[in-house]
Nucleic acid binder design. Structure first.
Lengths: 210, 210, 210, 210
DNA sequence: AATGAATGAGGATTCATTCAT
DNA sequence: CATGAATGAATCCTCATTCAT
């Protein structure tokens, strides 16, 4: 008899195929770039034929847009959730250090989506870029707020351009996907180094270990 | 100097056309990515027809390889020359700050080549990557040496993983091409912020203004 | 026979299209030569668009290789089958005469493939040539054996270089595709003349009519 | 002062360059076929640049036409001269045997032009073919006459279709360029075999050695 | 929900040819 | 006479997309 709503639920066969396609697209997109992403290659990886993709996405660009968008959206969710879980009294600088860790771990361990989004931001056509840009701004707002809170508590050194510092820091984190591999040094080392650098940069005094 | 206008010299017609093609390719490559770089678009920008490119380069990949290679090679030359010009007594940390400035200025003001090389490093096929990788290693060696010298003079803080710090720093610099535009904040501000951050990170004491 | 219309059998739609492409390629190849064979022309003749060929063959050269190869292979099958059907007691010279007839009829009446293979043997690049050469050697072996059997029965005239004679004879047959057309003289006349010549050349006595 | 006619005579520099181009074209044409003959390759072989060819020939097709035409014309001259030098009393069959030798030697030893003309007769576009066809008919007329003379002296066997026999014989000779190489068997052997075959085919009695 | 078969737009590359020098 | 530089017309091939099944 008529199957319940499960047929279109998040675990329906269709939903799972759709997920497989997105995963495959994120993987290829992060490695080959926007123009280098072939639907046949995505299909191969998702273990189906290219035309089947059209059952789940109206076009190649729609598929890519979804990858690029959720690359940032997932990151935002992850970092926001991490921050929300912190005790009230966590200091602003500590919050930044923890956000940096969340960013790095999500980018490097969890998500081809984020790598895809980061690497292709500049290459994607305007049409796709728009929705992603909104998301980027929203994610940027989190960081902006973190820095502002740090500034308000007077804990930042004078003469440091806040917005430049923020962008440089995010760059250091984003770029990690270009060079980090698990076999050269553990992710923990990178995370700790980044946090140590953050504390030295933003702390108003000489820096000590945690 | 009675030479007859250097038939194949750096100013010959051929050499100038070749340069125009390279410039155009660097421009497109940095914006569209490896797979997205169309010879027709390059040709349009260089003000000739696509097949004319083949008079100057054996193939699309050869053209791109040259752009990617000189993107790093030029950067290396620029930074190496800057460092070579410093007085003997310049401190290791100061040398790093100055190298960072040279890197940023070359990347952001001078060279589409470098942006192209940086952005496409991960997308380019192995064949092209090889020569560029050599150059990258050579450039990386400069930074490695700078950090080692800083470490030797005992001026670095304990418990800082040198190689992670170096890669994070270079990431911050490389990523600047993704967000910096002259109309939001002057390059000088970015350079000073980066240098200030470097001094705070690497200095072995509480940080003071320049 | 309850089989569902043989999805990939020799009569499937795909198999029929593939055959149409091969036929068209053989036709063009035999008339325009290797370098002169355009995929668009083949496609026109096969009544589809050029890129559709790539659904059935990996490349132009693969298509041509298959034509060239089966040009010889079909000939070999045809001649071998004809010889196999002869009564045991057929004399060696008579076998040669009959093989010549089979060769001529296959070349002139049946197969663009064979004409294509014969005419382009010298022009095709090494890669394609290899497989065809194997087949040629196998076909040549049939003729070599026929001549050796004739020699063993002592029926050949003295002082006739067997291998030269064989090659000259095959040349006479192969070349027929360059000049014979059905409207000048019937094929039967050519066949009978060729057979008469063979009997006179190889018979050890004065020559008589059949 | 004004140089005499020698400037444009058969040994002028221009004439020699022209000859080099023709030789190169004949070489390439005989090996790569009409469509496969590239002006750059011809130019390479003739030791000049492709555009220089246009000083000597109005177009690629004109160059090829000249090669194809003189391939046959030279053959005709050579065979005609050989026949003309024979003593009056030479028998018709002997004249045919001698013509065959002249044909084989010219084709295999002397002339890429002839090989080019023979191999490409069927592939060349109509425009080029026309002039060559006239020449072919003229050359064919020599052979036709030879056979008619043999027939008139009553020396041919009955029931042999003269024109078929002639075409088959010429085919055997023409095809030799496809298989003969000096390293497998001496040309003399091929010539003698061909002549022996001719005498057995056309002689009205059992065949004896020369 | 998916595939086999095909198409049309475009992209790199080749090549005869031109032309100023 | 010849070449350096360039062009425009093809040609092979790739790829997103369509559609009947």
């Amino acid at each position: 008899m008529a199957q319940p709503a499960a047929t279109v639920g998040p675990d329906s066969k269709s939903a799972r195929t759709r997920k497989r396609i997105l995963d495959a697209a994120a993987y290829i997109l992060s490695r080959k770039g926007y123009a280098g992403t072939r639907l046949t290659e995505v299909a191969d990886l998702a273990d189906l034929q290219a035309p089947a993709i059209y059952y789940h996405f109206p076009s190649r660009d729609d598929l890519i847009e979804e990858v690029m968008w959720s690359g940032i959206a997932d990151m935002r969710d992850h970092v926001a959730a991490t921050l929300a879980a912190l005790p009230e009294e966590t200091s602003p600088i500590e919050r930044i250090a923890i956000a940096a860790e969340a960013h790095l771990r999500h980018e490097l361990q969890i998500s081809d989506y984020t790598t895809a989004a980061i690497r292709n931001a500049a290459q994607v056509p305007a049409k796709i870029r728009t929705r992603q840009l909104d998301e980027e701004i929203a994610y940027g707002a989190i960081w902006k707020k973190l820095f502002e809170e740090a500034a308000e508590t007077g804990s930042l050194p004078d003469h440091l351009d806040l917005s430049s510092a923020r962008m440089l820091l995010l760059g250091a984190l984003n770029w990690a996907s270009e060079w980090w591999t698990p076999d050269v040094r553990p992710l923990d080392t990178v995370v700790q180094t980044a946090q140590s650098m953050i504390r030295r940069i933003l702390g108003d005094e000489g820096v000590q270990e945690i």
